[in-house]
Design a binder for these strands. Structure first.
Lengths: 361, 361
DNA sequence: TTGAAAGCGCTAACAA
DNA sequence: TTGTTAGCGCTTTCAA
């Protein structure tokens, strides 16, 4: 009645020790593979453990080693392919070192992010990877740093914090991409991003701009200046969160008196909404409007025409973030403060010349 | 030097108790909001905690409550939008009850899945959600059940296990979908799935077939039989894992002597590869080949022509799985053993009539 | 309502 | 190489 079905009460080291007729300490040493144990004892303990179907209680173990072998990951939206792919990079890398991952989704909400960081700290994760929603409220990140547990930022750097960040360099590629659009004859170029207004955009002049939004904007501005123009600020929309707002924004951009002739989407989720709106407006790419997006999703190649994209090595970015974090945790030599990956502009068919304006010039 | 920067050594209940001049027990009660505490003491303790920036050690708490407020989730591939969307459903639901989620990715590998379940058990999660890779090796799932901690299966049911499962009903919709293809004149219909051969397919005749693969095949067979034909077994390919195999399979299906005139993809990742291959073969949808896929990804609507899909309520399935699991954990009334959602066939432009065969009938 | 003291399951000094 | 004995930080009897 109690032989094979090991219900309820867990088997502990004490049980194993008794079964193997050794002290609890010896049993623990054998099971935990630490300290000195004679071959004799080791095999007896292991046999007893197997017979009893002993499983260690990792909570108890963590409690006195101070290590949980767990990483915390905080992202804005796991549904965003950028994050789910990065997550796989993180997860795969963590697994090779025997670490597991607790994932928390914030919906790009700063309060939720703060709560998430707090929870992870309380759960005693060994370190965490955060894609911060804002560089303005970073108290919780500072707490993380103060706790002494390593923190690595993903996709966005916050200079004052003094922590490592892993991300793709965005200003040069943005310059290249926008220059390509300008060379194709576009001057009315729209940019639609999901990050909250004020969370990152305020630091236009100040700061190092080590985040996707300001880097891309900087590259865009530089491209326009280089071409002897200034960027069309009225076409740069940084709020866009949920579907509805994006549609409205795109309609505005496309139907206003001096409309955008090209649109850049800051990520694939935004891109889907932009494309959907363009479709509903019955406009054609690239005849009526040119289009470009960040992140090389597989479907971009399958569209008619195929979409021109900026491809960043997302999986690798995630993997590198995990690798950096693990280096800190395991006391290995660590790479420079900000690890930068490079992106590529993949030219395809979604960019053409703007339509002749009805009158003027 | 040690005032605001709370470095290293954590503040414990003992510290708070001392600061508040009460016993450790009273401090713990006040902080944990349990037991009886006078208003007087409670406020003193809370004030002390705030002053000391006390943060509970959830590990220690879990260790003697036996509850970790953590759910484990084991999926085949978080990069698959099906799972990442379901994950959001799980994560959102868990959060409303104050639970966090540990995510483990198995790459649809049974051994990795077994290891994952073991790790989660050792970490003392309060319950877990698993999308099992196979119904043949389920020892680890049985261990989970034996451990007494609730388990809920996602997207696949394993009848003998006696645990709850949440999934979309697939046979009827498969029947409907294939019938639609047959009515359009197709008899050579290919089906490409990612699940390993033998993991699920073997139970053709036996078992309840409560898993996506066999349900879909059953519906497909029924559709053919109803139309007085038998299903084209040579066009049903169940192995397909990574990109390369899928391409080869699709080329085979499309270039063999008596080729498929329509292809069904079992999920969106497969669909992308199939579409890519069709594109490289310079074949046109639906003129050269008709196409249909499971899961209504946003991009399916944007393709030219828009893709006909079977849409299942993925987010809701994830949310329901979490809700069911939480019900078990919290001792609430639980729903029936297998919770079934319904899917819809969304007819769009990717299905046409097969090309006239060069000769014969 | 309070406090002292006994665990939770494990690791880690310290002796033997 | 062993065993004894303390803890880790918290909850939870049990008396007071």
């Amino acid at each position: 009645m109690s032989s094979s079905s090991s219900r309820r009460r867990d088997v502990t080291v004490a049980d194993v020790a008794r079964e193997a007729r050794v002290s609890k300490a010896q049993a623990a040493r054998a099971l935990g593979a630490y300290g000195a144990v004679s071959e004799e004892v080791r095999s007896r303990v292991l046999a007893a453990a197997a017979a009893l179907e002993y499983r260690p209680n990792e909570l108890a173990r963590s409690m006195n080693t101070g290590r949980s072998n767990t990483l915390g990951v905080v992202v804005g939206d796991i549904e965003n392919p950028f994050f789910s792919l990065a997550m796989r990079g993180i997860s795969d890398t963590a697994k090779t070192e025997g670490f597991d991952v607790i994932l928390i989704n914030t919906g790009e909400d700063v309060a939720a992010e703060a709560e998430a960081v707090r929870v992870l700290l309380d759960k005693r994760v060994d370190g965490m990877i955060v894609a911060p929603a804002s560089h303005l409220s970073v108290g919780h990140l500072r707490d993380a740093v103060d706790s002494g547990r390593p923190l690595v930022l993903l996709d966005r750097q916050i200079p004052d914090l003094g922590v490592d960040a892993v991300m793709a360099k965005m200003d040069d590629i943005s310059f290249t991409a926008v220059t390509h659009l300008i060379d194709s004859g576009h001057t009315r170029i729209g940019y639609v991003s999901s990050l909250d207004v004020g969370s990152w955009s305020s630091g236009q002049g100040m700061g190092l701009g080590l985040n996707p939004v300001s880097e891309r904007l900087a590259g865009m501005r530089r491209a326009f200046h280089t071409a002897g123009m200034s960027a069309p600020n009225d076409l740069i929309r940084l709020s866009a969160g949920k579907p509805q707002p994006i549609r409205e924004i795109v309609e505005e951009l496309l139907l206003c008196p001096d409309p955008a002739t090209a649109i850049i989407a800051s990520d694939s989720l935004i891109a889907l909404e932009v494309l959907h709106t363009i479709q509903q407006l019955e406009m054609r790419i690239p005849d009526d409007v040119s289009f470009m997006m960040y992140d090389d999703m597989p479907w971009a190649l399958l569209m008619t025409p195929p979409i021109t994209v900026v491809a960043q090595p997302v999986y690798e970015i995630g993997a590198a973030a995990a690798k950096t974090l693990l280096a800190h945790i395991l006391g290995r030599p660590v790479m420079p403060e900000t690890l930068v990956f490079h992106s590529e502009l993949l030219l395809r068919g979604s960019i053409g010349s703007p339509k002749k304006v009805t009158e003027g010039a």
